[in-house]
Amino acid sequence: MMKASLIANSRMQGVEAKGLLRAHKWWLLRRLSQASALLVFMLGPIAGIWIVRGNFASSELLGTIPLSDPFIALQSIAAGNTPTALALIGAGTIVLLYVIVGGRAYCGWVCPVNVVTDTADWLREKLGITRDRKLDRRTRVLIMLCALLGSIFTGTIAWEMINPVSILQRGLIFGMGAGWFVVLAVFLLDLFVTRRGWCSHICPVGAFYGVIGRASVVRVAATRRESCTNCGACFRVCPEPQIISPALHGSGTRVVDSGACLNCGGCIDACPVDVFEMSTRWSSHRSPARDTPVAAPASNKKSRDPVKLSG
């Protein structure tokens, strides 16, 4: 009873239909990925094991491979800085990575703020908080433009002065100080003010990766949408529920083709009848675009594509 009450309300149907583990498969993989991303950076300062140095803004993997945050690099250019070859290679590598695994896979699989906001959403459900100050989801795009414009105006990397994403990841790796208050503010925003307020409405980092996400390869697809019972579990678990409908209820592609998708797999976990699966952007080319119940080519892919992401 106590154990059951910890399960997110939106995953309850999935748990009943598929069991606790299968209804949390992608959730577990994501938490593992987020924890590893931080731990690999923290192993150096804590245990002296230097697999990677630096932090998410820029780092050096195995003493050679440069990795850089492309949105920070873009602001740096806007601020009038001529980027070094090293920074460009680092940022290019990261862009390429997310073009493959999904633009906002950064949000779902790496960013530590996601854990904070997921927790706020979980608590929101548990406490039955329905108060939801509606914000336009395009606000984040405006804030992204504001960050770039602010960088031009000030001649500095403007968003990094307040970016909660940087404050949290850098704080965990280098020391937090008063940064916890910024994290707390994001948590309280998501809990009391707007559902999924930070990640799905305000954060310009997510908006930036969303632009990459428009072209990215790995995608969630509503492959077996004919089985859908309209229970609504996927909509309740999804941080961007507006992007599901076209793939689930439309007559066109079954692929969730919005850049806003985090590839978090929440819908795959939560669906009691396994409508969704991790796939690629091209899967609609293989299965007929019309709404016909052809499941064979899609299920062929099923065995292959998830491995790409989890492996």
């Binding site: 820029s58 780092s59 920070i72 800085n81 990094e160 790796i173």
Partner: peptide
């Protein structure tokens, strides 16, 4: 400001 335009606060110097 040139420093603040270039520094991404990665801590590799640290």
């Amino acid at each position: 400001d040139d420093f603040l335009a270039a520094c991404v606060r990665c801590g590799l110097c640290v």
